[in-house]
């Protein structure tokens, strides 16, 4: 069999490849112009000062306490938010996956509905609910459950509550997608073979739903790392996250180099999180939650 250059199937294949390239061109251009180029620019800026190469912006991570306390607080909040979304999201996804079609659509709609409201609006809504004379505190005081209003907002707690609410869909949806694909016969088989409902859940259902848990955790964790509006509005100036450090450096100090280096380090952290997660389950499964 000779693969001559006049082979019509080869020519057809080459034509097909050209068409694919042509169709991909617009999206490649968008990714290139809006992502790759700015990123390179960011890296460039982070190592420049007064027209010369410098690592001073990165050195500040070791010398300036604000830097790493901010990163620490950001990571702590991300951990708390991730844990809270797992604890809240798993039962929701479990019920939705086991319910009849109509109910599961209803439950998922309830989870996704707030998703369509702006983050800003939701942050203000939480502010109204959680403030000193807000709905939650006044109800609790009226019922005599507490004497003095609880500090629910303008601190880390307020930030966590609102962030959990905003990011819950990112936990519930991959969990639901994974759970829904676990065949019902598996739990039936587990039961018929003598497993109590608890035993079957821990040995069969839970392990099979783990990829969804990891996917949801990675998404929520990474998104929390970059949260800006919520800590800004509900943190009361006491909750300082990395994104705020970036914005302060630009808005207050006009320090583009410092802001860039912080962004690059945060980006590196995100890559690290994905890398660690991909040791547990493949990357495509995190994104597609297959």
């Amino acid at each position: 069999m000779s693969a001559s250059s006049t082979d019509p199937s080869l020519a057809h294949k080459r034509g097909e490849q050209r068409l694919v390239l042509l169709l991909l061109a617009p999206s490649l251009a968008v990714v290139g112009c809006l992502l790759i180029v700015p990123l390179c620019w960011l890296v460039w800026q982070s190592v420049r000062q007064d027209g010369a190469f410098t690592l001073a912006h990165y050195a500040r991570f070791f010398s300036d306490a604000v830097y790493w306390t901010t990163f620490l607080q950001t990571f702590r909040i991300a951990f708390i938010v991730t844990a809270a979304t797992v604890l809240l999201g798993y039962p929701i996804a479990y019920v939705a996956a086991g319910a009849s079609r109509r109910w599961s659509i209803f439950i998922l709609a309830m989870v996704i509905l707030p998703f369509w409201t702006s983050v800003l609006v939701r942050a203000y809504a939480w502010l109204i609910l959680l403030q000193r004379r807000g709905l939650v505190n006044s109800v609790l005081t009226d019922f005599g459950l507490i004497q003095n209003p609880l500090a629910l907002v303008n601190n880390e707690l307020g930030t966590v509550i609102a962030t959990v609410h905003i990011l819950l869909p990112f936990m519930v949806l991959p969990l639901y997608a994974t759970m829904q694909k676990i065949p019902a016969e598996l739990t039936m088989a587990g039961a018929s073979l003598g497993g109590t409902p608890f035993y079957v859940f821990t040995r069969v259902f839970l392990p099979l739903s783990l990829p969804g848990v990891v996917a949801g955790m990675v998404l929520v964790f990474v998104l929390t790392l970059g949260f800006y509006i919520t800590p800004e509005l509900l943190g009361g100036g006491r909750t300082y996250m990395v994104s705020m450090l970036v914005s302060r450096n630009i808005e207050v100090y006009n320090e583009w180099g410092a802001a860039s280096s912080i962004s690059i380090v945060l980006l590196a952290c995100v890559f690290l999180v994905f890398r660690l997660a991909s040791l547990i389950i493949p990357f495509e499964r995190i994104m597609g939650a297959r």
Partner: peptide, 30 residues
């Protein structure tokens, strides 16, 4: 789980995250 009935399901319903031996010994462990 209290019936003592062994069921062979249409699509086998084997546990995909376990080996053959782990699948087969599942009833003993349970």
């Amino acid at each position: 789980h209290k019936r003592d009935i062994g069921i062979v399901f249409q699509n086998y319903a084997l546990f995909p995250h376990m080996t053959v031996a782990e699948n087969v010994t599942f009833p003993l462990r349970a």
